[in-house]
Amino acid sequence: MLRHRFAELRGPDVPAKALDARALAALAANPGCRRRALLDGAGVDKAALASALGSPSAFGQSQFAFMRGNAFEARVKADGGAELLRLAHERLDPGAEPPARAQVPDLSAAGPQGRVARTALALREAAGSGGWTLLDHPLLVLEVAGSPAFLEPDAVVVHPDGSWTVVEIKSFPMLDGAADPAKVGAAARQAAVYVLALEEVAARLAREGASPRVRHRVLLVCPRDFSNLPTASAVDVRRQRAVTARQLSRLTRVEEIADTLPEGTCFSPELPVEELTAAVEAVPAAYAPECLSACDLAFHCRARAREGGAVTALGRPVRAELGGLSSVEDVLAAARGEAGDPDDPAVAALRRAAALRAEALDAARARTLPAPSAGPEAALCR
């Protein structure tokens, strides 16, 4: 029933766009946005939707970067992942037996559910093998807001002690052993989603009598300096994992959001702009400037927030400081003393700031006004 409802929301013959870890990390960073939760849960292509609305997204990976990333990943995994496993041994488990003969199981199966089951079986078999195992592009599943999200990490390494490590392969460089902190942070948040999905597999296997363990230090593999040679760093994602788990648990279930929509609501890019805009506006959004780097609909939502004078367009810190004042008009009225409770700390701070601004402007005007004339007598004396 829910699958049929989602198909209606996407439009006739519009395929579903699968959720990935990057989208889930962005969704977890803004759990109050019902619009993104519904569109992602229903498999709506937000990039196509944004273009149809006249506010196309301005971010994404170039074709050149995509090809470079694929070429680097292929190099890292060449020869049965020998270099990747060497880096895992060096950075994460130097006391274990060197990965001279590692297993690389075949994870192919029919359909996503088949691949998820095959991945779980391979993880269970590898955990009891006593050696190194490399799972190349395993498929995991994580329930988000009542809908399953299929996730495909670059790789998962199984250590000789049976523990599991997520591997993230990125094409941005590590210069002198360090990478761009912002890019490392984004990779850590993405890896935290995979860790959560692996923990779901571990919990299911534990109920069957196994005792697997998911490591919270992931392996980030990047090019060394300006070469195409791989290097790696161990990144602790415990904080990102805890934040992501908490935020995802706060998401309203997608079917609850869908039930609040008017009958016949559809997000097909083929619809007229007016009808499509009305459908999108029927779902509440929680825009923040951070959305510009994570959501295809950010430019549309920003324009709407500015039109409505929403203070969220100024950023979450500003929104938090303003308390119950949710619009720019309310803020200005409170600052002028025309509205608002004087005992409200936010209102009092605004009025004090307005008074200080008025004093500063009066002082500046006084300094720039011409000196008053001394009269004709002074001119005669000269």
Rank of each mutant, 00 (worst) to 15 (best):
R304W: 10
Q190C: 02
V221H: 10
R124Q: 10
A145Q: 05
Q61A: 12
A363E: 14
G308Q: 13
L123P: 00
A149R: 10
A288Y: 13
D296I: 00
R246S: 12
V235E: 13
A188K: 02
T277V: 00
V328M: 13
P15N: 05
L198R: 04
A286N: 11
Q190G: 03
T265D: 00
S249G: 15
A203V: 06
A102V: 00
L84C: 10
L123C: 04
S233I: 00
A100G: 07
A298N: 08
G340M: 08
R86A: 12
P173E: 10
D362C: 08
L85C: 07
R118V: 00
E263Y: 05
L380H: 11
E275F: 01
R101W: 09
A26I: 03
A305R: 07
R316K: 07
S171V: 04
P317T: 05
R224H: 13
A65I: 04
R22E: 07
P105D: 12
S227F: 12
L175C: 03
L220V: 02
V221Q: 09
C295Q: 02
F172N: 11
T252K: 00
F66D: 02
S108K: 09
L53Q: 02
T133S: 15
A285I: 00
V166R: 01
V328L: 15
T368P: 05
Q247N: 15
T133Y: 09
R189A: 14
A28S: 14
E200D: 14
E255H: 10
K183N: 10
E90Q: 12
R302I: 10
A288E: 12
G315D: 06
P317C: 04
A187H: 11
P112M: 03
V328A: 15
G81I: 06
E377T: 07
R3Y: 06
K77T: 14
A182Y: 07
A110N: 02
R352G: 15
P148A: 04
A348R: 11
V331L: 12
R316I: 12
M1K: 00
P56Y: 01
A42W: 01
L198F: 00
R253K: 13
R189D: 09
S293K: 13
L325H: 10
T165L: 11
Q61C: 10
A379Y: 12
P342E: 10
A360E: 15
A18H: 06
E83L: 11
A120C: 03
I257L: 14
P230N: 11
R382T: 05
E263H: 02
R215H: 04
R302T: 02
G131W: 03
A333Y: 13
A110D: 14
L49G: 09
V214N: 01
E73F: 03
R189Q: 10
S268K: 08
A333V: 06
V195L: 11
D180A: 13
E200Y: 05
T252Q: 15
R382Y: 06
L220N: 12
G41P: 05
W164L: 15
R302S: 06
E274W: 11
A279I: 01
A379L: 15
V221Y: 08
A186V: 09
G337M: 09
F299Q: 12
